[in-house]
Structure formats: structure tokens, C-alpha cells
Simulated assay, not measured.
Amino acid sequence: MFIVLLVLILLFTFGPALVAVVSQLIAEGLGCQVDLHHVIPCVIGGHDYGQMFYDLGFLIWYSYLTLPIGGALLALWAVAAAVTFVISRKHRPAKEPSC
């Protein structure tokens, strides 16, 4: 359960930045320019994807919200994982010494 929560926290925290960076890399790989000041046309297969890359690039600004919130969630996750680990260690039966 803790691994699933950790993955979800990391996706929430870094998701917007990852989407923005990956979309930038895809656009540049297809020979398009992306600028956050204005939409630059990006014609691929007869369709203009400039607005889409522009909008996806703006997701980077959501990182100003998700990074601090994700950091707090990660700290709570670490405390809960540590408490669970300590409690589970106390409730384990002691091993008998072997000869």
C-alpha cells in the first residue's frame, strides 16, 4: 500500500512538470518551436498542434503548487511509513537462538 501511495504522490508532485517537459521534447523532436509568450504554428500531418503544445507548456506553472504540496505529502508518507515499520517490528515474535 505504501508503494502505491508513494507512486501517486510522486506523480502528483512531478506530473505537471513532466508533461510540460515531455511535450516540449516531442515538439522539438518534430521540428516545432514552443514559446510560452505566444502560440507558434506547428503543422504535423496537415494539422496545427501549436496551441496544444503551448497549452501543455503552461502546465509547468502548476508545479509551483504541486511541488510544495507533494513535499508535504511525502513527509507525511515518510512519517506514516516509519511508524508502521516500528509498530510492525514490535509485534514480531522474537526469534529463538539456534545452537
Rank of each mutant, 00 (worst) to 15 (best):
P41W: 08
L6A: 13
L30W: 06
V7P: 04
L11G: 10
L11Y: 02
V39P: 02
L18G: 10
A80V: 02
S88C: 07
Q51L: 13
C32Y: 06
W61R: 10
F53N: 03
W61F: 15
D55C: 03
V39K: 13
T13N: 04
R92S: 11
V39Q: 10
G70Y: 01
H91F: 12
L30F: 08
A75S: 11
P16G: 04
L30S: 12
L56C: 14
L65T: 02
Y64P: 03
V34W: 02
A20H: 03
K95Q: 15
V22R: 06
L6V: 00
V86C: 09
R89I: 02
I26W: 12
W61E: 05
V7S: 11
V79T: 01
M52R: 06
L76R: 05
V43H: 13
S88D: 13
G57V: 00
L56V: 09
L36T: 01
I69W: 07
A72D: 00
A82Q: 08
F58H: 15
V22A: 13
L56A: 15
F14M: 12
R89K: 14
L76N: 08
L59C: 08
I44D: 11
L6I: 04
V79S: 07
A94P: 15
S88F: 07
E96K: 14
T66N: 06
V21Y: 02
G29Q: 04
G31L: 02
F85S: 11
F12S: 11
V22Y: 10
T84D: 15
L5S: 13
E96W: 09
L56G: 12
R89W: 09
Y62M: 14
Y62R: 00
M1N: 09
A20R: 09
V7G: 04
L74A: 11
L65Q: 01
R92Q: 15
L8F: 09
P41S: 15
H47I: 07
L25I: 00
G70W: 00
M1Y: 11
Q24K: 09
S23Y: 01
C99W: 14
I3C: 04
G50T: 07
D55K: 01
G31K: 00
I3E: 14
M52W: 13
P16E: 05
F53A: 00
G46C: 10
A78K: 04
G46Q: 09
D55P: 04
L6R: 10
L25K: 11
G71I: 05
R92A: 14
